[in-house]
Nucleic acid binder design. Structure first.
Lengths: 204, 204, 204, 204
DNA sequence: GCGTAACCGAGACGGTACGTCCCGTCTTGAT
DNA sequence: ATCAAGACGGGACGTACCGTCTCGGTTACGC
């Protein structure tokens, strides 16, 4: 009979406790909800989880990486790749499910906090790009590739620019809080991205 | 003839020292350059400026508000409103002078740090919106209004969306560092904003 | 005709304000009552008296000297030289009026605070010895001199020792708070000072 | 057989470091010698001892309690209970060893500083009475009890008064610095305590 | 009656120490 | 080898007062 085995070799001594792992992530989520990433301390997480600080540091080097893990799975699972048959439909659906996930939610506040934290934590920055930015953008690229296949978009287009055009304004409003995000915003944004802003309708 | 008078009366005691004010802002700029906002300490600023900590706290409630003041004047003065005669030209010029100001510069690092700080300092958030976001966007709106007058853009368009479309991708790349910013990026972005991304050439 | 003249020449310029002087001493007394000498600050006195800090520093170099002046006149006026006709009576009367002045009173707490302050303020120490210890002891010496004249005490005796014997235990209990002071204590102390503690009744 | 166990359980985490404890007390003693209790800073002690401030605060709530511990053991060990066979001899010996310990010494300055500090620190006041006044007085009471057994002193006498009579004048002179302490003072004081000051020699 | 000098209240100044918070590491005995 | 507990050295925080200085303004004297 084969022993089930995690990817890292079993090693000697006492194995790491799954229970502690869970308790830490739960405590992190609770504290993130209560006071946000900026006011989160490892000390508080340890106390709330009933765990020694070393047990946390053994697994996550900084509070950013810990918060990221508590945040990522939840968030990503709520951003399914839409498939409505048109680029306009896909864009609108993706944008709205993003807005729903972050607007006025603790998830949104944590997202904001993580983006802030990424700027001061190099270790976290790597994880962020690899485990968050990259997979999310990969999904968005898929939407565009399907549109290219359908002939909705020229195949010569710079797809990175398109992804930025759609989501950067959303992130911008989330961070700068200068303007709200609602269905009106989503529609206007999708329209502008697809059609551009110059009034060339007539002469074409 | 009545003397015009500022709203606050002269105030009685010893007036605040302009020299200290200057020394504090200079020290802040120097330290911002040396180690960035995240590692900036009020204590260090005070010591470098040859000033008591209270003299700083008397003027700025948090290190964010202090850093903002040290940053804003410089930055804003380097973002002149372009007037090239076309929207495409104005957009490109504005984008490029922004990129030049922030890419690989201490100013850029400070801008990033401030956006991060804004997320954790309510007092700073207000100042940020009032003294930074609002005046910068006012300039950008001007560019578009001139384009509307020239007939380059429909007057029905949502100008807030346009401003976001142009600059949000730039801020996005600055913060997420997932892609670089260069002239190629600027051209592609301006094109996309003006023309949209859908291949409507044929059917129109 | 001689002009009556305070020791310091009148000088030019605006004379010091008696009203401020009074306000400062009153505020000092009030704050001494409220929170004691240890927690008294010049800043608080100035604010309470409606006076600038410099106005205080111009008159008193330290909070000890200020507190002393607020304390001394009051206290000394309540320590009249008794004259009962016997040393025992005088001792008892002097002791009891001292106990009444300090036991459980704000005056007593201030006296204690001043003795503590004298240990850390050289300027105050000089004033204390000159303006407090010396005049008080002079009075006590008088009591003893009268007793010598009456033949109650040998003229060879060291009167400094006697003064200490009577009052040092009282100060000691005030400062160490190890034992209370009451009429029983006063009687026992006076008896012991006059008769000594050795049981010499038999052999004499 | 049951294991005898101290009242407090062993405690779980890392035990407090004896080495730090020692370093702190040594640094305190050195600084007390250099500049006295009034100018002693917890910050300086921490730096001199190579220790964090919290390590000090964890053990002693105030600088008074810290200084007391640095002072007490040393001082008390130098005040042995004399046993010369007579009360006069014991009194004189006890008084002189006290004078030798405090007159012109850093120990004496610290004693003075502590008595001042006791007046402003309630926590310290309790410790002072329990760990200093009480044991010292217990010793002195012993001297008197032995004298009672030898018949030198009436058993009806108030021994608290006697202890005060002997030592209060010494403390008084230490604090008021109005008069010096020397062998002449010690002899005169012991004489006066034993014989009283009234000239009853004749009529007895 | 004008100038000047010392005073006044207010409050900012450079500075020191406070006592607290949290960091990331370490040292226990116990799994 | 890992666990919970909790002490460790360290760095910065924001506050409280210190004693001094700098304003505009007041009050008296001596010319």
């Amino acid at each position: 009979m084969e022993e089930i085995q995690t990817s890292t070799v079993r090693g000697r001594g006492r194995p790491r406790s799954d229970e502690s792992q869970r308790a830490i992530l739960d405590a992190t989520r609770a504290l993130l909800e209560e006071r946000g990433l900026a006011d989160l301390t490892i000390e508080d997480v340890a106390q709330r989880a009933g765990v020694g600080k070393t047990t946390i540091y053994r697994r996550w080097p900084t509070k950013g990486t810990l918060a990221f893990e508590a945040f990522a799975a939840d968030f990503l699972s709520r951003q399914p790749l839409p498939d409505t048959g048109s680029l306009r439909g896909d864009f609108y659906a993706a944008l709205m499910s993003w807005i729903r996930a972050v607007k006025g939610t603790s998830t949104g506040r944590t997202l904001v906090g993580l983006i802030a934290e990424v700027q001061r934590d190099l270790e976290l920055a790597d994880i962020w790009k690899e485990k968050f930015v990259k997979p999310v953008r990969a999904q968005h690229h898929l939407m565009i590739e399907r549109a290219v296949e359908r002939g909705e978009v020229d195949e010569t287009i710079d797809t990175d620019i398109i992804v930025d055009l759609l989501f950067a304004p959303a992130y911008h409003r989330l961070l700068q809080t200068h303007l709200t995000m609602n269905t009106r915003f989503a529609h206007a944004l999708v329209d502008a991205v697809l059609n551009g802003v110059s009034s060339r309708g007539a002469e074409r």
